[in-house]
Amino acid sequence: MGLFADKYPDVSYEEKLRLWDEVKADARFPDYLYGCYECGICVSACPSARFYDFSPRKIAQAAAREDIELIYEQMNDDVWNCSQCFSCNRCPRQNSPGGVITVLREVAVNNGLKSAAQALEGYSRIVYKIMGTGTQVSPDMLQPDAFPDWGPQVKQVSDELDLWRRALPPETLHTTKASWQVDERTLIELYLIWYNTGVMDMIANVDEGLNLILSDVMEEMLEEAGYEI
C-alpha cells in the first residue's frame, strides 16, 4: 500500500506488484535508478514537462519509493508523455528517469496494457512505415490527422508538400514518399531482427491488425529470400 489514494482499485495489488517486479528484473534497471533527491533538475531539463502535466522526477520518486500503486498509475499514463530524449540524465545521483520510462513502457506493451495500445494508436502509420520500408517518417506523413499535436502549421506544410520538398537542394530528397531508399538486403536484416527480438510480439500486443499487415509484407519478402518464419 502506497501513500496515496489508488487510482486503479479494480486492478489487484498482486498484479501491480508483478508488473513492478518485471520492471526491476530488467537488466538495465539498476543502472537507471539509484535514489531520488526530489531536486527537480530532470524536470527543468525535460522538454515534455514544458508542454504536458509530466514530471520525470515523479517517475524516479515513485520508483525509488517502490510505490506500487503510483507506479501502476504512471505506467498507464505519465510514461507516454515522455519524448525519450534523455535530457533528464543530468541527475546528480546518476538516475535516468527516461531509462526507467523505457522499461516501464516495454513492460506495459509486453503485458498488453490497454492504455499502451491507446497511447500508441496514433503511431500505427509511423510504425508501419518504419518497419515496412526501413525508413524514418517520410514527408507525406506530415498530415494534420497523423500529427494533430504539431498544431495548425502541419496543415500548411502538408498542403504544399511538393513545393517544400523542391526547396531542399539535395536531389535525392525530392521524393515525398520515403526518406531514402533502403536496399533489400538491409530490409531483410531488419525484418529478421524484429522477428527474433520479439518486436513483432510487442506490436501484436498493442495492435493486432498492424501486426497482420506487417507480417504479410515481411513474411513474403523473407520467404523469397529463403527464410522460414
Binding site: L3, G35, C36, R65, E66
Partner: peptide
Amino acid sequence: IYWPAQEKHHVQYVK
C-alpha cells in the same frame, strides 16, 4: 547514511 538508506535499504523519504 542517506544514499544507502534510499538505494540499498529502500527507506522512503517524503518531503
